[in-house]
Design a binder for these strands. Structure first.
Lengths: 334, 334
DNA sequence: GTGAAAGCGCTAACAG
DNA sequence: CTGTTAGCGCTTTCAC
């Protein structure tokens, strides 16, 4: 391992100067700087992160809490975050709160404590990772950015405009002639579910269609709920099927597509299907889903920006909140 | 931040004793140990990793190189690895060699260099992450475990039994009465592709069926190749369709299922479909794919075990090679 | 603009 | 079995 001392010797300067070249370029004369930089390159010197960290109290690592890396939305979020971290020399530590066999609430809290003690420069939390315990963010001591809707405004956050997106999807489906639309929501204890639901139902109301509670089914955002919803649809409405069904997540919609296929129900022939979300995995789903959502990578970039401004001290005011508009992608299912 | 000194004071011992309790439990008398442990608990003391690392020369982090976290196989590999690392107090640093817009070969090499310099305790590389440059592993200086087929045997490796799996799938399809089976392979420059291909074609040969080169299509393992393969199938064989098609990866198979559906071709009515791989995402694909493969989590665990034995020095002999048998999952497509 | 020196928190000889 | 002590490699006052 080549250390700073060797670089100093090779460049014929003191070790302090080398450090300055690395950390405060401007404090060193251009001539010297160039010499030092050549020595660094020739020796292939890389500062020891542990030593740097020990000295400065920084770790150059951030933690990322997500509920489930298996969900396409979070996979893409993580990929975006990692790419961004990589280009800034930050380590990204991923924590899945929903580890197999565990209880996500406990895991969320456990990881939160662990992360704080362990020491990272910053934390990015994706909505459901702190399911039901968002209040914990009020007392968190690490700079944090939240991805999702955070009613308590405890930390900086960036989210999709769930109301507007669902509203627009509602308007779109109505424009296609649908009036009886089944609606599979997210879980009611989850904020974003209610926001999306409100947006969707407002669209119906604004178009003069009454809200029919019997057409609403509370799902979980997860695949099994897609299957359940189809079963519900058939048991509850087989004699008078709605002409379309809107899912609050693409995972439910995908599973539902499978369930519908299992039963020989054609999409969109027998029923139109639309869903929330905008993830790459949808590109290979057939029939191609009409969906609305935000590119997870946009959320990643935004969150990291918010976080970096905190970590670097560039911003230290009250928590900020960014709301991103969604994109509607029309395909053959609706 | 509570440090070791404070723990020592609270427990009324020297700081060395505390360190010993942490690192060499047995060198301290039970009575003292208990006192120290209580002090640690009461103060919520957590050792500073940077300081530990600086002193010991270890980082307590391992790097994981994969080609694409968006591919279900790698997603699950990563999840398994993270879970395992977590329980051992290791940080898992993920490196996607195939970052968007990049050239994976360069990225692989770039990351490899970076990882070596950066300093980690160990490295886990998943096959295609070092695509075409596996020879680089011969000169790698970090303890490394490879997941996949590694002909040069440069480091410890764990892999699926690709030959046997494909052979068994071939036998299975034959047992279902198929004789003309289209075969969409992986890319020929990739070792595992040829192994799977050989296994599959051996099964046909053993059953007395001649190998028909015109029924073989070279794919890429990636989704677009699934679409391409269907196009090829229809252009090349529409007048005399094979009764089944076997894909060397589930991503190609899934895309092909979509492409077939787009064209109104029924599965398995018009053609049976089978594929390699055993990932959770397949559970929601309809029709349900008949596949054969190994649970990625088993590969994860195995790789981490190999690696840990190296890192800890428990093993230091020549590179080992573990081959895992696959599981056949029969569903409705074949 | 440059250098000498102190110390971040911890571990492991070494001595007792 | 326990304690004293010397750094791990780096950054940053503080003098020059």
């Amino acid at each position: 391992m080549v250390k700073i001392q060797e670089v100093a010797e090779r460049a014929g300067v003191s070790l302090t100067t080398v450090s300055h070249v690395i950390n405060h370029r401007d404090r060193v004369s251009p001539a010297l700087r160039e010499r030092v930089e050549r020595a660094i390159a020739e020796l292939g010197y890389i500062p020891n992160r542990q030593a740097q960290g020990l000295r400065t109290g920084r770790t150059n690592a951030i933690a990322i809490m997500i509920p489930d890396i298996g969900a396409p939305f979070y996979t893409e979020l993580v990929r975006g975050l990692q790419t961004a971290c990589d280009s800034e020399g930050l380590d990204a530590l991923i924590y899945n709160t929903d580890v197999p066999g565990g209880h996500s609430e406990d895991h969320g809290l456990h990881y939160l404590r662990m992360i704080e003690k362990r020491g990272v420069d910053g934390l990015i939390v994706a909505d459901a990772a702190l399911h039901r315990i968002q209040h914990e963010l009020l007392k968190v001591t690490v700079p944090t950015a939240f991805i999702g809707n955070l009613p308590n405004g405890a930390v900086d956050s960036i989210e999709q405009d769930g109301f507007d997106s669902a509203y627009r999807m509602g308007k779109y489906l109505i424009s296609k002639g649908h009036t009886r639309i089944a609606h599979v929501t997210g879980p009611s204890f989850f904020n974003m579910s209610m926001i999306r639901q409100a947006g969707f139902e407002h669209a119906l109301a604004d178009a003069g269609h009454p809200i029919d509670d019997s057409l609403r089914y509370e799902g979980t955002f997860l695949p099994p709920a897609g299957h359940d919803a189809v079963r519900w649809l058939l048991e509850r409405h087989s004699n008078n099927m709605p002409t379309a069904i809107f899912f609050a997540s693409s995972r439910m919609a995908r599973a539902a597509l499978a369930a519908l296929a299992d039963r020989g129900i054609r999409v969109p022939g027998d029923i139109a299907v639309a869903s929330y979300d905008l993830t790459k995995d949808l590109e290979d789903v057939r029939p191609r889903l009409t969906t609305i959502g935000v590119d997870p990578a946009d959320l990643s970039r935004g969150a990291l920006k918010l976080l970096n401004e905190r970590v670097s001290g560039a911003y230290s005011g009250p928590p900020r909140r960014i709301v991103l508009p969604a994109t509607l992608e029309v395909h053959m299912t609706a």
